[in-house]
């Protein structure tokens, strides 16, 4: 059984099919990359999985159980956590409180306040933010805010973590650190799906890549397979290299 499975997942905004008839699966322990040009429907797919939106029609299964129609907080407690493309931190709360909220409300089995605090401290260290634990989240740098979102999402003790462009806008050093972080998350036993435009990161750490274009799935395979796929090169890599010239 797959950890997460989507069957014919679709959603329309007015006349626009933002995601249309996408079948996908994620297996436990994988790092799956979700790529595609701007407007391909990647973030919309994340919104569908995390129940910010409801697929119409289509079905999403977590460990074989249908999770459509649940509320975002229920999805979170079932074990799917996410970060946001544009950071959505609790700005005036200290970094540690941001993470503590995750560990107080996210896990299915409630933690005591003490345990939650301990876990928050551990997670801040895990993402490398121990030094700024008591600083208001809005005062952190963008790259730190993105890592704070990762820590906050991990605090909910997810089985599956959805990372939405955590590497956008990072410099070379930060990028390598972020790749390292994703690898470390996988080692913790958390399955990862990541939306990313940074090809180096995607090719470097993903076990499998799903390619979306105009809301449709046009590729699914190992980085090698996807890089060699004719359709993918035409619509995606092709465009990207044109833009690079």
């Amino acid at each position: 059984m797959h950890l997460l499975e989507g069957k014919g997942v679709s959603i329309h905004f007015g006349g626009l099919a933002a995601v249309s008839d996408v079948d996908f699966y994620v297996d436990e322990g994988e790092i799956v990359g979700l790529i595609g040009p701007n407007g391909a429907g990647k973030t919309t797919l994340f919104n569908l999985i995390s129940a910010a939106l409801e697929p119409k029609p289509g079905e999403i299964l977590l460990k074989g159980k249908r999770i459509n129609g649940l509320k975002p907080y229920q999805i979170c407690r079932l074990g799917i956590a996410r970060t946001f493309q544009t950071v959505k931190i609790f700005g005036s709360l200290p970094a540690i409180e941001n993470v503590r909220i995750g560990s107080l409300f996210g896990p299915l089995n409630r933690l005591s306040t003490m345990e939650a605090t301990k876990e928050a401290i551990e997670l801040l260290e895990f993402v490398g933010l121990s030094d700024v634990a008591s600083a208001p989240a809005k005062d952190l740098t963008l790259s730190s805010q993105k890592r704070l979102e990762v820590a906050r999402a991990l605090a909910t003790r997810p089985a599956l973590l959805l990372l939405d462009e955590i590497m956008a806008g990072l410099n070379q050093t930060e990028l390598l650190e972020a790749m390292e972080l994703v690898k470390k998350i996988q080692k913790r036993g958390v399955t990862v799906v990541m939306i990313e435009h940074v090809m180096k990161a995607i090719m470097g750490i993903c076990d499998r890549i799903i390619v979306l274009h105009h809301g449709k799935k046009i590729g699914d395979g190992t980085p090698q397979e996807v890089a060699n796929s004719k359709t993918v090169i035409e619509v995606y890599l092709g465009e990207a290299s044109d833009a690079g010239d």
Partner: peptide
């Protein structure tokens, strides 16, 4: 209590609060 923290997080960013397991 943690309700106080939940209320604050709702005021700061309601969408994120919902995705953190808070029944907003």
């Amino acid at each position: 209590s943690k309700f106080g923290l939940a209320l604050q997080s709702i005021g700061q960013n309601e969408e994120a609060a919902a995705h953190m397991g808070i029944n907003v």
